[in-house]
Design a binder for these strands. Structure first.
Lengths: 216, 216
DNA sequence: CCCCCGCTATTTACGCCGTAAATATTTACG
DNA sequence: CGTAAATATTTACGGCGTAAATAGCGGGGG
C-alpha cells in the first residue's frame, strides 16, 4: 500500500513537503530532482514513484501553498473578506518566494486554488457587485498580490542586509545622475519594509471599489 | 574593431536583439545559448565574444526592453505622468511576456531602468508628495504593472484561443463545485481582454492617491 | 515455510544545458 | 605581405530531467 504502510519512508506528501522546504530555503533554482532526492536520502529516480515528474511536482507545490491561504468565513462583508484573503495570500507568498512566479506561470489549477478563487468571486457577487465591476475588482486585487510578491521575492533582503547593500550602491557613480533614485534608496535604507506598503495599495484599491459600488 | 567592421556579422546589439526576438516568439525557456547561436548562424560559443554569459545577456535584454518604455515629458502633471509611463510599461511588458519575471528577479539595474525609476520619483516629488506617500504611490503603481503583466504572461491566449480553451474547461467536472469560478470563466470567454482592466486598476490607485495628496 | 508478485528503489543511459579551454580562422593594419 | 588581434569552432565537463532496465523487498497464497 502506498499511503500508510507503517514504514513507507517516501510518499507523495513527503516529497512535496521536502520540495517546498528546499525551494523556501535555497531558492527555486536549487530545486532539482537529484538534489531533492539527496535531501530525502534517496536517488532522484525514486521520486518518480510518487510524483509524475518535475512539472507535476511544481503544480503540487503551488496547490500545497494554496492550501495555506486562509479565507475569511462565509458571510464576511465583501471588503473584510477581500482584505483578509489578500493579506493571507500575501503572507503565504512572502513565506514562499518561489510561489508568485509559479502561481502565474502554471496553468494547472487544483481544488485549493479553485476554492480560493471561487470564494473571492462569490463574496463579491453576494455583495451585489455587477459583473463588470466584480471581474475588475477581483483582478485588481489579484494583480496587487502578485505584483507585490514578485517584487518582494526579487529583493529578498532583511533590514540588516538592506542597510549593508545600500551603502556601496549609494556611492556608485552610476547612480549620480539620478538624485531621486538615490533618495528612494536612502528612504528604503532608513525605513525598513514594515509591510504596510502592501496594505496601503490594497486599501487604495478597496476604497476605490467601494465608491464605485456605491455609485452603481 | 568591434562595432562596425563592414562585415562584422555578429555584435552585442545583434545578439541581444535576436535573444529578445527568440524569447518573444518561443518563450523564455526556448532561449538557449545553443539555440540562439543557431538562430544567428553561429556556434553557441561565438556569442561569448559579445556577451559575458547568459546572465549578462538576460540583464541586457531587460535593459533593452526598459529602453522601449516611453516616459511623458518633464513637467507633465504627476497624474498624467504616472498614467502615461504605466501604460507604456504595460504595453512593453505585453510585447515581451518574459519581461516581468526577469524585471523582478534580476538585481542588476542599467541606466534605462534607472532613468525610468528616477523620472517617476521626480515627477511625484515635484508635485509635492510627502516622502511616505511618494514611496507608497510609486510601489503601488509598480506592483500593479508587474502583477498584471505576470498574469497576462501566464495566460497567453488571444480571443479565439480563449473561446476554444474555455469550452472543455467549463465541462470539466472538477469545476462543478465552484459556480462563481464557472461564471468567471464564462465572463472571460464572452468579454475579450480589451485591456481596460489594467487602466481600471491603475485609475483606482491614482484616484486614491489623488485624494490622499489633497488631504495631506 | 517458501515462493512469487507487485511496489519501491537504483543503475545506466540519452540528449539537453551553460561555459571553460584550446584551437582554428578571419580581419585589420603597418 | 606579415602579423597580431578579433572572432569563430571544437572539444570537454558537470549538471539537468527522465526513459528503460534492473535489483531489492514485504506480504499473501500454495
Amino acid at each position: 500500500m502506498a499511503e500508510n504502510g507503517r514504514r513507507a519512508t517516501l510518499s507523495r506528501t513527503r516529497v512535496i513537503g521536502a520540495a517546498v522546504g528546499l525551494a523556501d530555503t535555497d531558492g527555486a533554482e536549487a530545486l532539482t530532482m537529484r538534489r531533492l532526492g539527496r535531501e530525502l536520502g534517496v536517488e532522484a529516480m525514486a521520486l518518480y514513484n510518487h510524483v509524475g515528474g518535475k512539472d507535476d511536482l511544481l503544480d503540487a507545490m503551488v496547490e500545497s501553498a494554496a492550501e495555506e491561504i486562509v479565507t475569511p468565513e462565509d458571510g464576511t462583508p465583501w471588503r473584510a473578506y477581500a482584505r483578509g484573503r489578500a493579506l493571507s495570500a500575501h503572507a503565504v507568498m512572502l513565506r514562499h518566494p518561489w510561489l508568485p512566479a509559479l502561481w502565474t506561470s502554471r496553468l494547472a489549477v487544483g481544488p485549493a486554488r479553485m476554492r480560493y478563487m471561487d470564494g473571492a468571486l462569490r463574496s463579491l457577487r453576494e455583495a451585489g457587485f455587477p459583473p463588470g465591476l466584480l471581474d475588475r475588482t477581483y483582478h485588481a486585487v489579484e494583480n496587487h498580490i502578485i505584483g507585490h510578491a514578485m517584487q518582494a521575492a526579487g529583493f529578498p533582503l532583511d533590514e540588516a542586509e538592506m542597510r549593508e547593500a545600500a551603502e556601496p550602491l549609494l556611492r556608485s557613480p552610476a547612480l549620480e545622475p539620478y538624485p531621486d533614485l538615490i533618495a528612494h534608496i536612502r528612504h528604503h535604507r532608513d525605513t525598513p519594509p514594515g509591510d504596510d506598503a502592501f496594505a496601503f495599495g490594497l486599501d487604495l484599491i478597496l476604497d476605490g471599489v467601494e465608491r464605485l459600488l456605491a455609485a452603481s
